[in-house]
């Protein structure tokens, strides 16, 4: 289906690239699903569960393609449920615990702005499957952004309590947003082949959008020099192992279990 040459080296890079995008999506989806039955009110509960569903859909499309690229008879389920913590290469921002509602919404806002910029470029990928997945995902991300922005506005300009929580969440999250723009070596290779996106090039637009949006609520957003990184190398926060023990429990207890 795709027009790229499939020499071995290229294939390994493509697999690492695609499976990492799947990991980002499945881990964030799992976190969002933790709000199910715990949302602040019913409609919000449903909304978060639906966004989790969009991300699990995205994860499935990427895992299916990763499995196909790898060509070693592993299924999407094998990749999601049978790999260890060190084999997961999601970026750390996706795995942090849900925190309070402000933390969850600030994370969504930061990620929605990022994915909005990222997917706009990924739809131009020379790999047709990657481009098709991006085309599907970007429509959903546009909608997510329409939801996360008003929430940030409302909480930032609400009560002292809600504003404090937003400010605290921004402080915590700005140490992990930098990783969104890092380029692992195999991704640089794929940018040259016209398949992946140069994440670094998206940083100015992301900064500009986030700063402008937050300054309208009188919040200064500055980059912090300290950045926690390591996700793409499989080096995670202490939280991912716990998440996986929950997410992978069923497949590991009953191998091959199907619905």
């Amino acid at each position: 289906m795709n027009s790229i040459q499939t020499n071995e080296e290229n294939k390994t890079s493509l697999f690492r690239f695609v499976v990492a995008l799947a990991d980002d999506s499945v881990i964030l989806s799992h976190r969002l699903s933790e709000w199910c039955s715990n949302g602040p009110y019913l409609e919000e509960d449903i909304a978060l569960a639906n966004i989790a569903l969009d991300y699990i859909g995205r994860a499935r499309m990427f895992y299916q393609y990763a499995a196909e690229v790898e060509g070693e008879n592993r299924s999407e389920d094998d990749l999601a449920y049978l790999r260890t913590e060190r084999e997961f290469t999601n970026l750390i921002i996706h795995e942090l615990p849900i925190g309070d509602f402000a933390f969850t919404m600030v994370r969504q806002f930061f990620l929605d702005v990022f994915y909005h910029l990222y997917l706009q470029e990924l739809v131009k990928s020379k790999d047709q499957t990657v481009a098709a997945i991006a085309q599907k995902a970007i429509k959903e991300t546009r909608y997510h952004l329409k939801r996360s922005e008003p929430w940030i506005r409302q909480l930032a300009e609400g009560t002292t309590e809600s504003r404090d929580r937003i400010l605290l969440a921004i402080d915590e999250l700005k140490e992990v947003v930098g990783e969104l723009f890092d380029m692992p070596s195999w991704e640089i290779e794929l940018v040259e082949a016209g398949i992946a996106v140069d994440r670094q090039s998206l940083k100015p637009a992301w900064d500009k959008h986030v700063q402008a949006f937050l300054s309208a609520s009188d919040i200064d957003f500055e980059d912090t020099r300290l950045q926690i990184t390591g996700g793409r190398e499989g080096i995670h926060s202490e939280h991912l192992g716990h998440l996986l023990s929950d997410m992978q429990y069923l497949q590991k207890t009953y191998p091959g279990m199907k619905w």
Binding site: E43, I46, A47, A49, N50, L53, Y143, K146
Partner: peptide, 13 residues
């Protein structure tokens, strides 16, 4: 608008 999501991913309330 009551909520951007409804009973399924394709609907709003």
């Amino acid at each position: 608008l009551l909520s951007q999501f409804g009973s399924t991913a394709c609907k709003a309330l």
